[in-house]
């Protein structure tokens, strides 16, 4: 297992190197002149362009620029924003916790509801129950996140006042940002402020989790039906096991395998930031950051974030693959 992990980590190096080349060239090959023009916009004075080109090293030969870029990356320097001058790493550490919390919330919603729904549908295939579950999941997959988000915000916050509609914490509570995880910070602040943090998470988690919910429900249903028809399920029944035990042990242990893969893929996507959800609920995560950075031509930030997302994706996939080996004895990474 350790060898497998090491091999996978080594395998990630060429992927990241290749990506770094593409990202490096992407900034240099932007239309409208050189990278300095792209960053400064078409109304920049030639003097300013020359100055930026010089300070950023854009006037050096490409290979010198690239090795310079890689050298800085290896030292953990992902560059700084042109807009506020803050380093990408610092801003990331402030914003990523919000994305992680939202991801966890969305996953709890999607997995917690999707798997029972999928199992329910699979137990009565082609029944009216199955039909309802299919409609729910089609709804989840086809309704745009911003429509669902604004509708829920309107109903549950504006009309009913049950839940807050924007932000991560009530600013009036004045909770100090220690870890930037709003729930953790709220717990540290005491006074049951955690309830406020959790209530802020509910609507964005549902909005963000609606698509994963649909996907997980469908995959769980298909997988359970598939496994139910396997010969070994008949063997288990022939042993005299109760339906309950056949379901929970013999069917689910096998049905989990494709579901795990899907949950892993969804997690990777969610961690890369939920642009729409974060925008709708004014959530301070990496998703909204990517959007503002693109709008502001803050290409160094965009470039670094894509690389960071790639690292996150590779890590999540590795974790899923390792978890897979524990679920499926036929896979032994040796």
């Amino acid at each position: 297992m350790l060898r497998f992990i090491v091999r996978r980590l080594l395998g990630a190096i060429p992927v990241l190197l290749g990506l770094s080349v593409i990202l490096f060239l992407f900034l240099r090959l932007l239309p409208g002149g050189g990278p300095a023009e792209a960053i400064l916009g078409q109304h920049a004075t030639p003097e300013l362009v020359a100055q930026i080109s010089h300070t950023q090293g854009f006037d050096q030969p490409l290979y010198v620029q690239y090795f310079d870029y890689i050298g800085r990356l290896l030292q953990g320097d992902f560059g700084s924003s042109f807009i506020d001058g803050r380093s990408v790493v610092d801003s990331f550490l402030v914003r990523f916790p919000g994305t992680v919390e939202l991801t966890i919330g969305a996953l709890i919603f999607a997995v917690g509801i999707g798997i029972p729904l999928g199992r329910l549908a699979a137990r009565h295939p082609n029944s009216w129950l199955d039909g309802i579950v299919t409609v729910i999941s089609l709804f989840g997959i086809s309704i745009p996140v911003f429509v669902l988000g604004y509708t829920m915000a309107f109903v549950f916050s504006v009309q009913l006042h049950w839940l807050p509609d924007v932000g991560q914490l009530d600013p009036r509570l004045d909770i100090p940002a220690v870890t930037h995880f709003s729930v953790v910070d709220a717990i540290l602040a005491g006074d049951w402020h955690v309830v406020d943090a959790l209530s802020h998470l509910v609507l964005p988690s549902i909005a963000l989790g609606s698509i994963p919910l649909a996907v997980i429900t469908r995959i769980t249903r298909a997988s359970v039906i598939d496994v139910s028809n396997e010969d070994y399920v008949r063997t288990a029944r022939a042993k005299g096991l109760t339906d309950r035990r056949v379901n929970s042990r013999h069917i689910m242990r096998n049905a989990w395998l494709p579901v795990t893969t899907v949950i892993g893929l969804q997690t990777g996507q969610l961690l890369a930031g939920a642009v729409l959800t974060e925008t709708v609920f004014t959530w301070n995560g990496v998703g909204s950051w990517v959007v503002t950075s693109i709008q502001n031509h803050d290409y160094v930030v965009v470039q670094s974030l894509i690389l960071i997302f790639a690292v996150i994706f590779l890590t999540v996939n590795l974790i899923v693959d390792v978890g897979y080996a524990f679920l499926n004895p036929r896979i032994r990474y040796s």
Binding site: Y232, R234, N254
Partner: peptide, 9 residues
């Protein structure tokens, strides 16, 4: 091959 559950010993 298929009558034994692959994930249990």
């Amino acid at each position: 091959m298929t009558s034994l559950n692959p994930v249990f010993t």
